[in-house]
Simulated scan of single mutants.
Amino acid sequence: MREIIFDTETTGVNPAGGDRIVEIGCIEMINRVETGREYHAYFHPERSMPSEAEAVHGLSDIFLSDKPLFRDKADELVEFLGDAPLVAHNAGFDFGFLNRELALCGRDPISLSRMVCTLVMARSRHPGAKHSLDALCSRFGVDRSQRVKHGALLDAQLLAQVYIELTGGRQIGLGLVAEVAAVEQATATAPIDRPVREARPHFASDEEIARHRAFIARLKQPLWERFLPAV
């Protein structure tokens, strides 16, 4: 099954009030295995960046001044998303912004039936605990040392690892062969051509057998003698 793990960075928290997406990062997974395909883009928000938002993600007006508008990248983003389920942390927030941007482009919204929220999953499985992305990374041993500020692609990469743990862990299904085949098909790459080697013989030589018998002969009252039939 193909799934997209994604995250957004924005100018604020209210898309209906004029806040906009300034960054999106997406990770493709097939059967809970990352394929290596990613989508990442920055967008000019067509408005100024509030200092509070810049303090969170570090994206300034100057940095975003030469970035494309969302509508200029909408086609390639929608193509990458396809019809896959979309996984996000506090997914209602990200879906609200994504669908607002699509509406401003005159596009249909993404159905909420495709929404998978890891925050809801974490609250259900660990009631009473902390459920921020940082807290979940700590709980599952996911390295977040590079997360100095929020970043859509980095956060999506971290969330992909957290999502694996929330859905059964790294041993899920134990179907490694099937998963590798699915990844190869999804990424349109040929299977790796590995040389076939004959099995090496694994038997003791005459010299090794002789040394073993000499060693056994030196043992006094070995345990297994208790179980040998009387002669």
Rank of each mutant, 00 (worst) to 15 (best):
E38Y: 10
E184P: 03
P45S: 09
F80N: 08
P109F: 06
N31M: 08
G17V: 02
H212K: 14
Q221V: 07
F93L: 08
L81V: 04
F97K: 06
T8E: 02
Q161I: 07
Q146S: 14
P222R: 01
R211D: 13
L133D: 05
V22Q: 11
L159T: 07
L174E: 08
L219H: 07
R226I: 05
G173F: 04
E52Q: 14
E52W: 09
A88Q: 08
R144S: 15
L133W: 03
G17T: 06
A188G: 07
L133S: 05
V177P: 00
A186W: 00
F215P: 00
G92C: 00
V196L: 12
V162P: 08
I5S: 04
L176G: 14
A135H: 12
H126G: 04
A103K: 14
A210S: 15
D19N: 08
P109K: 11
G96I: 14
T187E: 04
D61T: 06
P85K: 06
H57S: 01
I27W: 09
I192P: 00
A230L: 09
G128R: 10
T35L: 12
V183Q: 07
G169F: 12
A199Y: 03
W224N: 13
V87H: 05
S111F: 02
D108L: 14
R213S: 05
D94R: 14
L174C: 11
I164V: 15
E184N: 15
